[in-house]
């Protein structure tokens, strides 16, 4: 099937089998390998990407379902000038990653929440709910929670925010 995805702002024309999973198409066809597959059953969240701004498990979506839609991956997180996203810097500052395999999923879940609702990082409970959506086996989660809180504060303090 011929489809067009807008991936990190670029239109990409693809010819894919209907059964191909969005995550595989991003990784293999678009060569965007920052989206990782940790369970392929929607549980771990390592494959989280944004589809039309909403965080989804890309292992539980068919690429053909996204025809004409906009997909954002971890590769599209930094600014146009290569400036790191505040979430990326906050994850580093708080040691919120070790092996880094689950990290893109946490970043994308967090960016979706913070962009949809800049207040999402403010209340502890909401950050907690966000962190509870994905699995990490290395960090014990607390550094991830701190990183999102830190980035949210940073984003809220931005001029024009």
């Amino acid at each position: 099937m011929k489809i067009t995805l807008t991936v990190n702002g670029d239109d990409v024309a693809l010819d894919v089998e209907p059964r191909r999973i969005l995550a595989d198409v991003l990784r293999e066809d678009c060569r965007l390998t920052g989206t990782h597959l940790g369970c392929e059953q929607g549980v771990c969240g390592a494959c989280t990407v944004l589809v039309d701004g909403e965080a989804v498990r890309s292992c539980l979506m068919l690429a053909v379902q996204c025809d004409g839609r906009s997909v954002r991956t971890v590769e599209g997180l930094s600014g146009a000038d290569g400036e790191p996203h505040p979430l990326q810097l906050a994850f580093s500052a708080e040691h919120a990653l070790q092996c880094g395999f689950c990290t893109p999923g946490f970043l994308m879940a967090a960016v979706a929440a913070l962009e949809a609702d800049p207040g999402a990082g403010a209340g502890d409970e909401r950050v907690r709910a966000l962190v509870e959506s994905n699995l990490c086996r290395c960090t014990g989660y607390e550094p991830i929670r701190r990183a999102i809180t830190r980035a949210a504060a940073r984003l809220a303090a931005r001029p024009g925010a």
Binding site: T33, E75, P84, S92, F101, P104
Partner: peptide
Amino acid sequence: EGWSRREDERLLGGRGRYVAD
């Protein structure tokens, strides 16, 4: 600059290289 660990810039940017990549 700005990164606590040398590993972080690539891993946080989706530029890590795992075998499947």
